[in-house]
Simulated scan of single mutants.
Amino acid sequence: MDDARLTPNQASPRHVAIIMDGNGRWANARGLPRTLGHRQGAEAVRRCVAGALELQIPFITLFGFSSENWRRSTREVEDLMSLLRRYLQSEIAEFHKNGIRLRVIGDRERLPQDIVRLIADAEQRTAENQALDLVIAISYGGRQEIAATARRLAEAVAAGELDPEDIDEDSFAAGLLTAGIPDPDLVIRTSGEQRLSNFLLWQSAYSELFFVDKLWPDFDKSDLEAAVAEFRRRERRYGAAAESL
């Protein structure tokens, strides 16, 4: 596992993944439409990305819209798609200026075609940037990703293109949507909930988990710093005894 076997106070996370939870509850608590909660959540995204740049975190993945979120009301889904559309249109120039590379993972076939085109354009435009890799999971589900990868490997075996004996953890990971992106060292979830909710299930096998009571629209750089500080205090063993590391 390259040089990721860390002991306390030795290193900051290379990859932080965040389950951005609580937009709706934030709005409900204030008697506001859920749409306004999502808009405030977009502001929290801006603060988080700026904080990641300042903290020199190379990779950050944000869970923006899950495969299960399609079950929400048509109105809310349309509002979320509209917000995503505006975000892609308004932020890409700033991303490019700040050296941020944007990647989007998830099932694009369910997204409106104009959003698919905006994503492709943003990814191409920022492809060479190196200050920060910002990965946004949209229409994403961890179980679906694993099943799709297994299906592609099975098809390759059936076609005689792959020997079953050659399938191992590395070859499986290479078929995931996150191929080429390191596994998250730290997974943060806001709103006080303590579960992964079908997010990066394969990739988070050895991630440190950090749960924040704040709702996502209230999340800021200080919360990211607190999570990183807690990460640095932990000892990562990957199943080994401390004395063997």
Rank of each mutant, 00 (worst) to 15 (best):
D2M: 14
D3P: 02
D3F: 05
A4F: 13
T7Q: 14
A11E: 06
D21Y: 06
R25F: 00
A27C: 01
A29N: 11
R30I: 03
P33T: 10
R34M: 00
E43Q: 12
R47G: 04
V49A: 13
G51Q: 03
L53D: 08
E54G: 13
L55H: 09
P58H: 05
I60W: 02
G64F: 07
N69E: 00
R71H: 13
E76H: 09
L80Q: 04
L88K: 04
E91F: 02
A93Q: 12
A93N: 13
E94Q: 15
K97R: 14
G99L: 08
I100C: 12
R103G: 08
V104M: 11
E109R: 15
R110Y: 09
D114R: 10
D114W: 10
A122Y: 03
Q124E: 15
E128H: 13
I138L: 15
R143Q: 14
Q144N: 10
E145Y: 01
A147L: 15
R152N: 05
V157W: 10
D170L: 11
S171C: 05
L176G: 14
L176H: 08
P182I: 07
R189H: 09
G192M: 06
F199A: 12
L201Y: 00
S204P: 04
F210Q: 04
V212W: 05
K214E: 10
L215D: 08
W216L: 04
P217H: 08
F219I: 02
D220Y: 02
S222L: 05
L224H: 06
A229S: 15
R232Y: 02
R233L: 06
